[in-house]
Design a protein around this nucleic acid. Structure first.
Length: 259
DNA sequence: ATGCCTCCCCGAGGGAGA
């Protein structure tokens, strides 16, 4: 089963680029972030016509996550547990039944800039809630993965110019520590399990010719529980998608699982 | 980067992104 994560930066602006990539990459499941649309405005038919079931957790203008799945999903849940007052649409999870059940979580972790400040506080408290959900997933022992835009540069080698990011919420020690604590619960970073080399990025800013200068960062991650990691066959970043017409500033990252 | 783009809101120009 091929499962991808893709921050599309606006579903309406990305109809064609996303459609082209789906046709080419043929993922069984695509976890989308930054949909930037309410559920009613999501162009479901573009994806239903391609054989996908569409599950959305939208919000006006900002954030928003969705799942496109060729297989029907069960137990679809929206919203990261731990704060009922949190209105931001950043989490969707579900169970997919292949040869064996797999739990999939799509997330859009808060950016957190400027740091320090209330947005950074929100990022850290969201990561605390993510830690709790991640711990439950490990303990449940059902194979599970959490994929999405983590807005975390895990290591210096995950940025072309790490010195630019030293005071940024994506790279501050506290941010990276929180990410590392989650991974240390027993998760495997799917991409790093397959490719330890530096210079592998999933985001290039629209500004300053970042793509042409390959001034990128790796912030889109797929974390797998041990029983999920046992099924890992491949993990790739579809970097070429950044060269499309009207690209997102992120590109897809996908895993192939033998499940 | 005191933000050089692009998205969204809408119907101008501001907020957000990373």
């Amino acid at each position: 089963m091929k499962i991808a994560t893709f921050n599309i930066n606006g579903i309406k602006a990305r109809i064609h680029a996303l459609g082209d990539w789906l046709d080419e990459a043929q993922p069984d499941i695509a976890l989308l972030q930054e949909v930037k649309s309410v559920n009613e405005g999501f162009p479901r038919e573009h994806f239903e016509n391609r054989g996908y079931n569409v599950y959305t957790h939208g919000q006006k203008s900002f954030n928003g996550v969705a799942i496109l799945s060729k297989l029907p999903l069960e137990n679809v849940q929206i919203g990261l547990p731990g704060d009922d007052s949190d209105e931001q649409a950043r989490w969707i999870e579900a169970t997919v039944i292949g040869r064996q059940a797999l739990h999939i979580c799509g997330l859009y972790l808060p950016n957190g800039n400027p740091a320090p400040g209330p947005k950074y506080d929100y990022k850290l408290s969201w990561m605390k809630r993510l830690y709790n959900r991640a711990q439950d997933l490990i303990q449940s022992e059902m194979p599970a993965l959490m994929a999405g835009d983590y807005n975390i540069i895990p290591q210096p080698e995950d940025a072309a110019t790490p010195q630019i990011w030293t005071d940024d919420a994506l790279f501050l020690p506290q941010s990276r520590d929180a990410f590392r604590r989650i991974v240390a619960l027993g998760f495997t970073d799917a991409f790093r399990a397959r490719d330890p080399s530096p210079g592998q990025y999933s985001f290039w800013d629209y500004q300053g010719g970042a793509w042409n200068r390959n001034n990128g960062i790796r912030i889109d991650h797929i974390l797998m529980t041990p029983s999920c990691a046992d099924m890992l066959v491949d993990c790739q970043i579809d970097k070429h998608v950044r060269d499309q017409e009207k690209p997102s500033d992120h590109v897809p990252v996908w895993v192939k699982l033998d499940n």
